[in-house]
Simulated assay, not measured.
Amino acid sequence: MILDEKQAAITDTIFCVSAADSSRAYIPATLISGRRKGPTFTIAAGIYGMGYPAIASLLQLRREIDPEKLSGCLIIIPIMNLESFYNRTPLANPADHLNLDLAFPGSPAGTITEVTADFITTGIFDATDIFLDIHGGGVNENLVPHACYYDNKELQHQTQLAARLSEISGLAAVVSLPYNQPSGHPARQAFKQAVRLGIPALSITVGKLGSYEKTDIVSAKNAVYRMMQELNMYDNKKVLTASPLKRSYTEQVSVTGPGRGLFYSSFKAGAIVTKDEEIGYITDVFGRNIKIITAPVSGTILKKNTGLAVNEGETLFYIGSGQK
């Protein structure tokens, strides 16, 4: 395991996992071992193959970190889903058509995506003290950059640390999700699986799939630097302390399409809406048969689907509500 390497060093490796059908997946990882003792902070991107701002932010971070100034270890996985990345299929591995972020905890006897999830669960999470997943919104999404964590009442210390790291990230909003994980049901998401294992874990969302904006890259990278400073792991004096958090929510409500058609809305991410307010509508291909879309709760639009074509059940909005 790369964690066995000597201190004050940067070690790059590519793990190879294989399934029973001989299909393979490759997972690039960098271990940065610090001069002083400290926690192991694992940061992953590219679980969705086109999350370019998240991927670029970790590649820049890998170049910038000086292991002589680091306390503890960083495990950086810049592209968790390499096959999806190179095939430009953001939500699925082309080998088995499964979404890695819905495959946890995985299975060593499953398809290649399930084997990959099992490797992350057993090979990476077992060596992890804190876990961060960085990704972007959908290809056709306008969003407010935000951090997200699960409010696990049974593990208060871990939840408090995840909440604190979210709050000091410098992102525009924080969403605290209720942790409901029935026994015997898979966690599905990577960072929810980490929470299930008792690891303080959070996720941040910046930019969107397929985009490559410098501001999104810097925002994600600076969020990581602030977290490392909070963990007493690294101090980058060029990164300013974030302004006090202004928006924090205890719920994220999805608004789905009532039917197939063309979607219209003048609202943008960041807009404040009230319950039952009209926030968009759908028509058929002739512009007729209008179906009105209303806000189910009062709150702030965190994500908005910017596509014109929609199908029944597709998410059109995510609304942050229950503001603290």
Rank of each mutant, 00 (worst) to 15 (best):
M1F: 09
L3R: 05
K6P: 11
Q7W: 05
V17Y: 03
A25M: 10
Y26T: 15
A29E: 15
R36S: 15
T40A: 11
G46S: 04
I47W: 01
I55H: 04
I65A: 02
L70T: 08
L70M: 07
L74E: 07
I75L: 12
I77Q: 04
P78M: 06
S84H: 04
R88E: 15
L98K: 13
L102C: 11
P108T: 14
P108F: 09
T111Y: 00
I112C: 06
T121S: 05
T122K: 05
L143W: 02
H146M: 02
Y149K: 02
N152Q: 08
L161P: 07
L165G: 03
L171H: 00
P182F: 12
S183G: 08
A187M: 12
Q193I: 06
L197E: 15
G198D: 12
S203K: 03
T215D: 11
V224P: 00
R226E: 02
P244L: 08
R260Q: 09
S265N: 13
E277A: 12
G280V: 14
I282L: 14
I282S: 01
K291P: 04
P296Q: 08
G299S: 11
K303N: 14
K303V: 15
K303P: 05
N305L: 09
T306C: 10
G307D: 14
A309I: 15
E312L: 10
T315N: 11
F317R: 08
G322H: 08
